[in-house]
Amino acid sequence: MNLTGGIVLFAVIWFMVFFIVLPIRFRSQEEAGEVVPGTPPSAPADAQIGKKARITTLIAIVLWAIIATIILSGMITLRDIDWFNQLG
């Protein structure tokens, strides 16, 4: 895995984790009792995007380190996941 591959792997992991973290502790404006005019009642009352981004980054770093270690150590190679013999 080269530098570009590592960055792409981290970005993919980060966004996957972010989409999992986003709905955690979600509270809509309707549940909070204060719907801002012009927004749907299901809009978040307090999204806490910064906090969720920090949590996502910490989780993504741990997952990336584990996956990168597995890839770089050679425990799993392309030959191991070539189930249909497409690599020759």
Rank of each mutant, 00 (worst) to 15 (best):
L87A: 06
F19V: 12
G74H: 05
A43D: 14
P23T: 12
T69F: 13
I67Q: 03
D80P: 00
W14F: 15
K52E: 02
M16S: 14
P23Y: 12
N85A: 10
I24P: 02
I20N: 09
D82A: 00
I59P: 01
A45V: 00
T57D: 05
I55K: 06
T57M: 08
Q48W: 12
N2H: 10
F84Q: 04
V35H: 04
A65S: 13
V62L: 10
G38E: 00
W83S: 00
S73Y: 09
F19G: 06
V8I: 15
M16P: 02
P44I: 05
V21C: 01
E34I: 11
G38K: 02
W64S: 07
F15N: 13
L58Q: 08
Q29T: 12
A60E: 05
I76L: 05
I66D: 02
I66H: 03
D46Y: 03
I71P: 04
R27C: 03
L22R: 07
I59C: 04
S28P: 02
P40T: 11
F19A: 07
A53S: 14
P37W: 06
I7G: 07
P40I: 07
D82N: 07
I49T: 12
L58H: 09
A45P: 04
A43S: 15
G38T: 07
F15H: 07
A32S: 04
Q48G: 01
I55M: 11
I61V: 15
V8M: 11
L22Y: 00
M16L: 15
W83P: 01
W83L: 11
I76C: 01
A43E: 15
T69A: 11
I24L: 14
L3A: 14
I70L: 10
W83D: 01
G33K: 10
L58I: 15
V8L: 13
W64A: 11
Q48T: 12
S28C: 08
F84E: 01
W14R: 09
D82M: 05
D82Y: 01
V8W: 07
F84S: 07
R25Y: 11
